[in-house]
Write a protein that binds this DNA or RNA. Structure first.
Lengths: 199, 199
DNA sequence: GACGGATTCTATAGACTTATAGAAAAAAGG
DNA sequence: CCTTTTTTCTATAAGTCTATAGAATCCGTC
């Protein structure tokens, strides 16, 4: 039935998650139908239920897959021994790179997670707010070391970084020609000028 | 039939648009059903079609209603005789205020417009890109007068402003306790520090 | 090549939605 | 108060979609 640890099963479930990510990103959770997802992975609609108990479960897996990566990465960045600016650059780089690597999953997390059943949503919410808090911590640390201007509101700053990354992430997903490193460069430029003391 | 200019008709169509905005914002275009919208305005599902030819038309009207306001306002700002910083503040203020005043419609424009039929979508797209171009123009002007740093990419800057406003707008719609003017204050602070020369 | 589990298929029940048609009610006008 | 117009209602056709059940196929192993 389900949950078997076969080789193919694990592999195919992964493809299923990616397929779902693509379709959800394109049509939204409610606009997408299970037939679309199944077709994209080359199986028939009914067969999809071999991998997911329900459409909602598929959404949950996509959302998790979307943020896992950069949320885990954040712990490393925050705990590292780098100066404020380097941490900020690392954060933006990690966040925006995730949009390229994981393609649509992160976008789906941002746009569709509120359609998840409550239990699953609050688990994800925790990951999200951990992320924000750690970022906030980076700003506070920056204030202590004198890198960040005294007048900066760290909570606001963290939110602004995330918001900006997501806004650009959307464009990155939509337009594959967009130069990722140019975007990273300009975002960090704006943020460093906006938040740090001029030397 | 339709299109009559009766008093009540005009008034009710307006309520219909607002009702649709709320429901679309909450459940997304595909997740919302015409019954939800009708109920919210106190009529039965079928009666909604007295005001809209289709669900898609409703979405179109909501999107238009969402941006009309601040897009029109932009022309005034761009053409005015203020220094760069004042124009930037005015833009952010106008954009974020729209989120409060027009409630969900602007959010719907951002999140759901891609589900519109092509013809309608491209008309809206034009409004959106006019907006961005004018904002870009403000930055270019700022560069000429020396307010904006030479290294700034005006196209990027305009996109960043819009992205940041939308990210905060989302939070503003979701959390009605958020202090609008505090957000405006901090956003403009970040942007001015990020893009202009320090005095 | 027969067995057993893993994977996919077909078919369908049941629920929900949009949009329309025509009747009914309400409001306006003379 | 009767007529006309506007607005809302009920009922429903036609379509779509999720999820399940049971049959069929694939595939490695003995």
């Amino acid at each position: 039935m389900t949950g078997t640890g076969t080789f193919k099963y694990v592999q195919q479930r992964q493809t299923a998650i990616r397929a779902a990510a693509t379709v959800f990103a394109e049509k939204g959770f409610h606009g997408a139908c299970t037939k679309d997802i199944a077709e994209r992975m080359g199986i028939k609609q009914g067969s999809l239920y071999y991998y997911f108990k329900s459409k909602e479960e598929a959404l949950g897996e996509v959302c998790l897959y979307g943020i896992q990566n950069y949320v885990e990465h954040m712990a490393t960045i925050a705990d590292s021994e780098q100066p404020f600016e380097a941490k900020l650059v690392a954060t933006v780089t990690s966040h925006l790179s995730s949009y390229r690597e994981r393609n649509e999953a992160l976008k789906v997390y941002n746009d569709e997670r509120l359609y998840l059943p409550k239990a699953r949503r609050s688990r994800l919410k925790k990951l999200g707010s951990d992320y924000r808090q750690r970022l906030e911590g980076i700003f506070e640390e920056g204030k202590e070391t004198g890198a960040v201007r005294r007048s900066v509101d760290c909570h606001f700053a963290a939110q602004a970084v995330i918001g900006m990354c997501n806004a650009w992430g959307d464009l990155i997903v939509r337009d594959s020609e967009l130069d990722l490193f140019e975007v990273i460069q300009k975002c960090t430029d704006l943020l460093i000028n906006g938040f740090t003391k001029q030397s």
